[in-house]
């Protein structure tokens, strides 16, 4: 067991433990804050896989952005003081079917992956160069489509936010 394994198990433990809290916490705000540690643990796993740029993106977008959005979502809906927003056990059979399907896919991937390939080809310099290069040469169409996707998100957010104002 080398340092790589120890760090991996540390981040895997952080991710799994906090993900467990996300789904079992009775109060939605605890779930939201626990999600922070899940995102952080996943960023650590990306680093171990040699995807340093993705790890930084994970921290910037998920920890810095998506989580703020989720907390805003909680604050926007947490008005109802008489009814506590809590997680409960509903829809047992569809849940079992869904998780069984997901588990099947994950086990298939888990058994079919060569897990010892990443150590040998661990990059010595940042992957941002290679990413920047293929993003503007081979995948330039996807890059522009992504801009349009972000534009749609922006227009959608603006439309929803203004509708609320007219109603009030």
């Amino acid at each position: 067991m080398n340092i790589y394994d120890i760090v991996f198990y540390l981040f895997a433990a952080i991710t799994l433990a906090s993900a467990f809290v996300v789904v079992t916490a009775r109060n939605i705000i605890y779930s939201a804050f626990s999600l922070l540690f899940t995102f952080f643990g996943i960023a650590g796993l990306y680093v171990l896989l040699g995807a340093d740029f993705i790890a930084v993106v994970q921290l910037m977008v998920y920890v810095g952005g998506i989580l703020v959005l989720i907390l805003f979502g909680v604050m926007l809906t947490n008005k109802i003081t008489s009814v506590q927003i809590k997680t409960g056990t509903l829809q047992v059979i569809p849940a079992i079917l869904g998780t069984a399907l997901m588990a099947g896919v994950l086990i298939k991937i888990f058994t079919g992956t060569n897990w010892h390939s990443q150590m040998a080809q661990y990059p010595t310099k940042t992957t941002a160069y290679a990413l920047g290069h293929i993003l503007l040469t081979d995948y330039v169409l996807i890059f522009e489509l992504l801009g349009i996707l972000l534009l749609i998100a922006l227009i959608g957010a603006a439309t929803i936010a203004r509708k609320e104002e007219k109603a009030s």
């Binding site: 977008v61 890059f143 972000l150």
Partner: peptide, 26 residues
């Protein structure tokens, strides 16, 4: 809900910066 719009704006331009960065270094 105006705060939500601000958060959405923040995320969209956050992602924009992330895509400008690899372009910038290359």
């Amino acid at each position: 809900i105006k705060y939500y719009l601000v958060a959405m704006l923040f995320i969209v331009f956050d992602i924009e910066v992330i895509f400008v960065y690899p372009w910038g270094v290359e």
